[in-house]
Amino acid sequence: MKTMLKTTAAALALTVGATAAAAEEKVVLYHWFEYMPQELLDKFTAETGIKVTMDTFDSNEAMLASLKAGAIGTYDLSVPGDYMVAILKNQGMLDTIADGELKNKANISDQWLDVDFDPGRMHSIPYQWGSTSFSVNRDDYQGDIQSTDILFNPPEELKGRINVLDSQADVLAMASLHLGIPQCTNDREQLKALNALVQGAKENWTSFNSDTAKEVLVSGDVSAGMIWNGFSAKARAEGANVEYAYPEQGMLVWMDNIVLLKDAPNRENALKFLDFMLEPENVAALTNWTQYSAGVDGVSDHLDEALRTSPENNPPAGVSTAFIQVCDEQTQAVYDTIWTNLKK
C-alpha cells in the first residue's frame, strides 16, 4: 500500500505542482522568527538568482520536533543554537561539509572555529552569538536589577508583571544559575530544589512567551522579561525604557549556527548560501539588524557605531557566562517532568 500511495501521490504532485516547481533555483531555510532581514535574502537572490524560502520556529526544541516529525529532507538549512547542533548531530540529522566546499570558511573567527558542539566546523557555520538574561522597565522599577532574584524572587512592584521565555532549556538553565547548581545535575536534592524554585516562582510570572518577548516589554504589558540581548536592544530602540541586566549569578550565552541538514534537496544552493553568510559585509548587515554579535572576522569595520557601544553588547567585566548543556536521557526525563509540573 505504501508504494501504491507514494506512486499515486507522485503522479498527483506532478500534475498539481507542475507550475509551482518549474525548475526554479531555490534554497529552503528553517529559521528563527524575526532573525533575518528580508533585504539580505533579496541581496542573495540578486547575486545568485536563487530564491530563499523561509519557514520559522520559536524554539530549538520546536525545530527538532518538526524535523523529527518528517520535515527532514524538505529543508536545506536550519539555524540551531549551540547545544541543539550537538543534538542534531547525535540524531544523525546533519550533512557533512567537506573540506574545500566552502570558499569563505577561513573567515570564521578562530574563537568560533573549534567549538565543542561542532569541532572543526564540519556541519555548521557561525550565525550570531549573544546572551540570554532579562530586562526590566526602568519606569516601573528603579531598584537593583543585577540579580536573578528579579525573576525567581521578584520585588513587590514586579510580581505578576514578568514574562519568561517559553523554553524549557532556557528557564531551567537560568534557574540553575540562580541556585548555583550545575546544569543537568543528577543530584536528587538539587533537582528537587530546582523543581521547588520554579514552582514557587510561577505565581509571579504572568506569561510564558518567546515570540512576544520583545513586544510585551515595548507595549508595557509586562515590566520585566527574560530576553536575548539583541532583542532587548531592539525593544529599547522601539521606545521602551528597558535595561538589560547582567546578573551576578551569571547569564546564559549562546551561539546560533547555520547547519547543513541531511538529505538537503538543494545542497549546492545551500552551500552558496553558507558562503554568502560568511562574507564579512553580509554578516555585518545581519549583525546591525539583529543587534547581536558575529562569529566572522572582518565585520567590525562595517558595524554601526551605536551597536558597538550599546549596553546590551558590552557586558561589564567579570560577568560569568554559561552555555546551555545537553542533558542525558535520564536527567532530561526529570527536566520534562519539572516542566510539565510547572505548566499543569
Binding site: E61, L64, D166, S167, A169, K344
Partner: peptide, 22 residues
C-alpha cells in the same frame, strides 16, 4: 492565557511540536 497553564490541546501539541517530544 499566556501559555501558563496547559489545556489538553496544548499538552498534546507540546508532545509533537514543543519541548517534550513524547
Amino acid at each position: 492565557g499566556g501559555a501558563k497553564n496547559f489545556m489538553i490541546g496544548s499538552l498534546i501539541e507540546e508532545q509533537f511540536k514543543g519541548n517534550a517530544g513524547n
